[in-house]
Every structure is written in C-alpha cells, then in structure tokens.
Amino acid sequence: MMNQQLLTALASVQLDPMSWTIVAVGIGIVFMSLLLVYFFFRYILTFILNFKLRSFARRKGIDPSEADTARTMMSGEVNAAIAMAIYSYFNELHDVESGVITIKRVSKNYSPWSSKLYNMKNL
C-alpha cells in the first residue's frame, strides 16, 4: 500500500525538461573530457615521444625502429629486474672472501693506573 502510494507520487512528478538536459550534457561532457585526455595521451603524446626517441636514436646511430619497440614494450617489472641485477652486481661483490685470517698486534703503553699489581692488596 505504502509502496503503491510512493510509486503513484513518483509517477505524478513532472520533471523539468532542463533536468534531462543537465543529465545528457553532463554525461556527455564527462565522457568527452576524459576521451580527449585519452586520445591525447594514447596518440598525440606517444607520437611526440616516439619522434623524440627516433631522433635521439638517429643521432646515436641506433636503428630507430628498435629503439621505439624497446621503449613501448618494456614493462616496469623488466626495469625492476634489470635494476635489481645491477644493484646486486655492484653492491654484493664481497660475497667471495679471501679466507685469510690476520692477527693484528696492538701495542699499549704501560700505565700504573691500570696495573693489576698496584690495585690489589698485598696480603
């Protein structure tokens, strides 16, 4: 009964046409803005960066197509693995030890202040 009343009340409400305009324009603009950002970063920025990379490769005498593939295909995981390998190589070189034990003699000057002889009672 209560639900029926609510539904009847809802059905009787006449929405301002402006509200539908807001909904249509709102959804459209949100999608359009983010689509624009998507196209920019997917195509335009990629094109600019690839162009920059190719010109850099050309200067260095590298095949530009190879440089481009390397940049776009390399994942963060691969980078992390390479970084870890380089770090391990440079920082864990001490893994192989010489095995030679040396005893270093330390010479100390005599001082009566720490002499056992002077600090014990001669009974």
Binding site: I22, I27, F31, R42
Partner: peptide
C-alpha cells in the same frame, strides 16, 4: 589511458 573511460562511466551514478 583507456582506463580513463572507466572513471567516466562511474560518474553516470551522479546523474
């Protein structure tokens, strides 16, 4: 960047 569109789709809830 295609994930941007998922952020747009969820905003339909607002309207």
């Amino acid at each position: 960047p295609r994930l941007l569109l998922l952020g747009a789709a969820a905003q339909v809830g607002i309207f």
